[in-house]
Design a protein around this nucleic acid. Sequence first.
DNA 1: GGTAAAAATATCGTGTGCGATAAAATCATA
DNA 2: TATGATTTTATCGCACACGATATTTTTACC
Lengths: 157, 157
Amino acid sequence: MARAKNGSSGPDLLRLENQVCFPLYATSRLVTRLYQPLLEPLGLTYPQYIVMMILWEDAPCPVGRVGERSLLNTNTLTPLLKRLEQMGFLERRRSPQDERVVEIHLTRAGSALRERCAAIPETLAGSLDFPVEKLLLLKSILDELSERLQEAARKDP
Amino acid sequence: MARAKNGSSGPDLLRLENQVCFPLYATSRLVTRLYQPLLEPLGLTYPQYIVMMILWEDAPCPVGRVGERSLLNTNTLTPLLKRLEQMGFLERRRSPQDERVVEIHLTRAGSALRERCAAIPETLAGSLDFPVEKLLLLKSILDELSERLQEAARKDP
DNA sequence: GGTAAAAATATCGTGTGCGATAAAATCATA
DNA sequence: TATGATTTTATCGCACACGATATTTTTACC
């Protein structure tokens, strides 16, 4: 076990190899890279793909709801949604009931894109070749941790 | 269990709740947000903090080595290192042996920053309030997955 | 020794991420 | 029914991320 340079006993928590957060950050980026060759032919980035998945479940729905589900703020989401609109996958329309909210509606092309993405999860899982039970365990821990982090964020600010 | 809209049996893998990659992506960003209030007083972003941790272990070392350890490409790393140089934490010097390589040297301020970061891991762990054994399990799965993803990336291109 | 390939950084363009702030519509309530 | 607070979205500025490409230096090898 690597020891501290800092005089205290115990492992040196500032070493990369003793951190949880770094592999989390690194793995997330590696996974995004893995998606890239599958999404690029469809003209999508990974965050755009996330948003489309939300819309396939929920559309039409307001921007705020997309933000809650994706955990993306409006300053990221608004330009991202405008790009998806430019590409013809969705339309942004002010709600007549409440002029503040912008409802996101899928176009025919946006709905149709779902079928073109249908094989992505299994293709990825196949090319990854990683035990499914470990992925499920990973997911369950991440879901808990994510929940805990969102609680913490709700309290703090 | 949520079923597919797409005609096939089994869970709908395009639903956010059935994905591993989304919680990975989301949790990574939530963690970065958690660091922000601790790093901002030091003038660091989270990726800069990662790079400083690498340098505290390895400096002086070439840019390429920082890239290998952080899994960041030069197009991200060069501007990031220039910012850290502007802040006075490091110096970028061409190696006399090989003029192609740029060696990163910590300044006194850069080394001293280590002490100002010493408490961050434990402060974070404290404010997170998440079982340590789950974090260790998470780390071990992420390390394996990360290794697997890097192998896949080495083969493919 | 000359030249093509390889290695190490840098640059460019596009698309996130996010803190801070602004703008517009709605709500609360005095 | 004003008017101040709240809600919802948009804008701005800066810092990543990364594919593609360029530049410089070294190496290979004929």
